[in-house]
Simulated assay, not measured.
Amino acid sequence: MIKKTVTTLFMVMAFVTFGYAQDITGNWKGTVNDQFEINYTFKVEGEKLTGASKGPDGSDRPISNGVIKGEDLSFSIDIMGNPIQIKGKIKGSDADKTKAETIQLFFTINGNDVTLVLSPVK
């Protein structure tokens, strides 16, 4: 009986967790220091996050070690030979928690903390 109850509870928790996961697959853009436009292409498969970033110079930088869990995400991008660890938060609309409206990314480059807000490209 306890095994059945625990199994049922686990399944309910799994469905609730996946129900709140936000799909950010697609193109996103933001501006760093009000100067440099950065574009991201994200692809989500379960908890795996892949894609690439296109910087101001036009070069693509692939995302590595990408993970997405609920509204939290993390990945790495190689910039000039240095792996940059990026963490982020997905913000959804109040009416539909599964629709992402913005993504806030947080990282440190050259000793400076940077926050980048991305919006979907329409």
Results as ranks from 00 to 15, higher is better:
E71L: 05
K48W: 02
S64T: 15
Q35M: 13
S53E: 11
F10V: 14
F18G: 11
W28I: 05
D34K: 12
L73R: 02
L49I: 04
F36E: 07
V12G: 04
W28G: 09
V12M: 08
N65Q: 12
L73A: 08
I68F: 03
G58I: 09
K54N: 08
Q35V: 11
G55F: 03
F15S: 15
I38S: 01
E47Q: 05
S64M: 04
L73P: 05
I24T: 04
K69F: 06
L49F: 04
Q22T: 14
I63G: 01
A14G: 11
E37I: 12
G30C: 04
K29T: 11
S59G: 00
K3L: 06
G51C: 03
G70S: 10
W28A: 06
K48S: 12
V12F: 05
T7W: 03
V16Q: 04
G26I: 08
P56N: 14
Y40H: 05
D60Q: 13
I63D: 01
Y40G: 02
V12A: 11
N27W: 01
V6F: 03
N65R: 11
E45I: 01
A14M: 14
L49N: 07
M13A: 15
G30F: 05
E47F: 11
T50K: 04
K29D: 08
I24E: 05
E45W: 00
Q22M: 14
F36Y: 14
V6L: 09
T8Q: 02
T7V: 10
E71K: 15
E37N: 11
P62C: 02
E71N: 13
I2R: 07
N27P: 01
K4F: 08
N27I: 03
E71S: 15
K3M: 02
P56T: 15
V32D: 05
E71C: 01
S59L: 12
E37Y: 00
G19V: 07
Q35K: 14
T7M: 11
D60I: 09
K3G: 06
A14S: 11
F36H: 10
K69I: 13
F42A: 04
K48H: 12
T7Q: 09
D57Q: 13
F42L: 05
T31P: 01
S59N: 14
I2Y: 08
G30E: 07
N27T: 09
K29I: 02
D23F: 08
F36P: 00
N39V: 07
A52K: 15
